[in-house]
Design a protein around this nucleic acid. Structure first.
Lengths: 346, 346
DNA sequence: TATATTTTCGTGTACGCACACGAAATTAAT
DNA sequence: ATTAATTTCGTGTGCGTACACGAAAATATA
């Protein structure tokens, strides 16, 4: 393994000079700079990050801003796990993490946490920009201080985020359509159930629905697709009654598509209605969803590997801060098909 | 962050003494040892691995033994990529890699490469034990020298491998059965095509077939499942003729299951026979397979994320060598469902 | 008590790099 | 040519740890 010393030796300069060109510091003539860069190239030299970190007592702090865990939606547990994994790897390389949380049903808590995050003066931040408008209002605070930020899970167009890590919602909806079509008997009708107590992921969910419908449109299967929308999820009795009525009114509905992680809520009701011939598909491998997948009430789930999203987000910031490696503007998360048969192997 | 120096200061000893108790080296009286341990406890001290790695000039070399790339089967490209990724991460931590290759159709080259690998005196090895018998014959050479070894992709029972990283073949076959059942119209018959020019993965392939059949057995679908076996793949004309004859003889065959990565070979023939109503499913996302998946000739592939397998194998050895972390005996690779709609997002 | 032996510990150097300080070389000003 | 100003570069120290060497202290042997 070649070191700075080897480069200096070969170039007939001191290690200080090599150090200067490595860090683009002034004080080196063009001539010697070229010479040294050539040798670095030839030797295929890269700085030893271990020694580098030890020498520079620099410490970076990354802040994260994600929804807090609530019992009814432990989806965010996963990216947090990925973040934790990444931090475990880099904590000894001078990295600290600072997690901020907000209530995903209250934009005020988001604004509040956003400010607190900025007050902590992080080197970079990772945000799940659930609230579109508020994010646009606040993002200037980060840009003023030149704090790089990456978005995760929820896309927000038109901002200067370093990167976005998330699924192509339209395509994942399209895939859901294909799977639903496979699962259903001919001539069956489909019901799309939106449960939007949260306004979160608004565009994502719409895109999923668009993709889903697009599958049936382009494959020229003329299938009736119904829509049901619930604002509240608390009162599961009303929900149950409404769904029961609707299914009775349209007995040809044999498939339910839930374009969010609220699959288990629907599955629970369908199970209690004892409608065994109804197939259900939806998103995200939360524990509850997996439960109904395993017992057969839910037929398929589509996952985006949220653990990986969190991990990648941190690693990306790490590489950017330490090696100035500019990430892609958009990292597409996998669109994983999860069935009863492979749910144990993810 | 407390350092060794702080501990030494507090304990009224030199850093050398602290170092001794940290590494459980002899030469420290019980009394001072206890004292130092107490302070370490109080200070909540942990060694700084960065400095530790820098100071210990220890270098490990990991050897790998995998089939070489041949144009007709670039499957092994993937785990090699994963290995390369892992090495990139740990090369600065004193790790070197030494890759050995063999011809997957010639056990002699395997034996030869195996010996060369041992001669290189590696700290640990990662093997794709394609040749069962030869592996059992040679494994003693590793054990004599106490060289830890992990298996990848192909399971070999009853040996003292540190770990095995690979798919549950039976379960993946079962899943293939489910998918095939979804894809096929009622009453269709199925043909399983084995192309075993290579004797590799013998048990894996059998397990996949067993799993596949098991799906139809337990789900009580009485479907006729045919079997066709080809030893050679070179002469694609004979292969084509044989397949043509067979399909003509059994016109109800609407699904072909290829329990190996040789899906594209079959797909090519089916395409040239212009049998558009035949659905094909198989394994592994090689470039050729993906090509036929995208153009619709192949309906589904099952992947085991071979890139990840290579990556995990090296990381696992790294953790074992540096931190004495004993891995699980068996890491199950994911069973990924790959369709036209999600193949671009893996 | 004097000497040998063993146990216990302190010192010094190295790992590869970052960065400050100041010296040498070059160029400009007089 | 002399001095001043500027550019270019070399040296030294420290980051926290590993480890070899040898010295001091404790204990054993005579």
């Amino acid at each position: 393994m070649k070191s700075i010393k080897d480069i200096a030796l070969k170039a007939n300069v001191s290690i200080g000079t090599v150090d200067r060109v490595l860090h683009n510091r002034p004080g080196v003539s063009e001539r010697t700079k070229k010479k040294i860069l050539k040798i670095i190239e030839d030797y295929n030299y890269t700085v030893n990050p271990v020694a580098s970190i030890l020498a520079s007592k620099k410490t970076y702090t990354i802040a994260t801003l994600l929804p807090e865990n609530i019992s009814s939606d432990e989806f965010w547990e996963s990216p947090k796990q990925g973040i934790a994994n990444a931090i475990e790897e880099i904590k000894n390389l001078g990295f600290l993490i600072n997690n901020f949380h907000f209530d995903q049903f209250s934009s005020n808590t988001y604004i509040d946490a956003f400010h607190k995050m900025i007050d902590s003066k992080p080197s970079a931040v990772l945000i799940a920009p659930i609230f579109n408008k508020e994010t646009r209002d606040l993002i200037g605070l980060l840009e003023n201080q030149n704090i790089p930020y990456v978005f995760i899970n929820t896309e927000t167009e038109g901002l200067n985020n370093l990167s976005f890590i998330g699924q192509d919602s339209f395509k994942s909806g399209l895939l859901a359509g294909k799977l639903m079509n496979w699962v259903l008997p001919k001539k069956a009708e489909i019901l799309i159930i939106e449960i939007r107590k949260d306004i979160s992921n608004y565009t994502s969910i719409n895109n999923r629905i668009n993709g889903f419908r697009d599958f049936f449109k382009t494959s020229k299967k003329s299938i009736a697709i119904h829509n049901l929308h619930f604002d509240h999820v608390e009162n599961s009795e009303t929900l149950k009654n409404q769904l029961d009525n609707y299914l009775s009114k349209y007995p040809n509905i044999k498939g339910i598509f839930v374009p969010s992680s609220k699959v288990s809520t629907v599955a629970k009701i369908v199970e209690s209605l004892d409608k065994k011939d109804i197939e259900i598909g939806g998103f995200d491998t939360t524990n509850d969803n997996i439960k109904y997948l395993k017992n057969g009430t839910v037929d398929f789930l589509i996952s985006q590997n949220p653990v990986q999203q969190g991990y990648d987000g941190i690693k990306l910031l790490f590489n950017f801060l330490t090696h100035q490696i500019k990430p892609e503007k958009h990292y597409f998360s996998p669109i994983e098909i999860v069935l009863k048969e492979n749910v144990d192997f993810l």
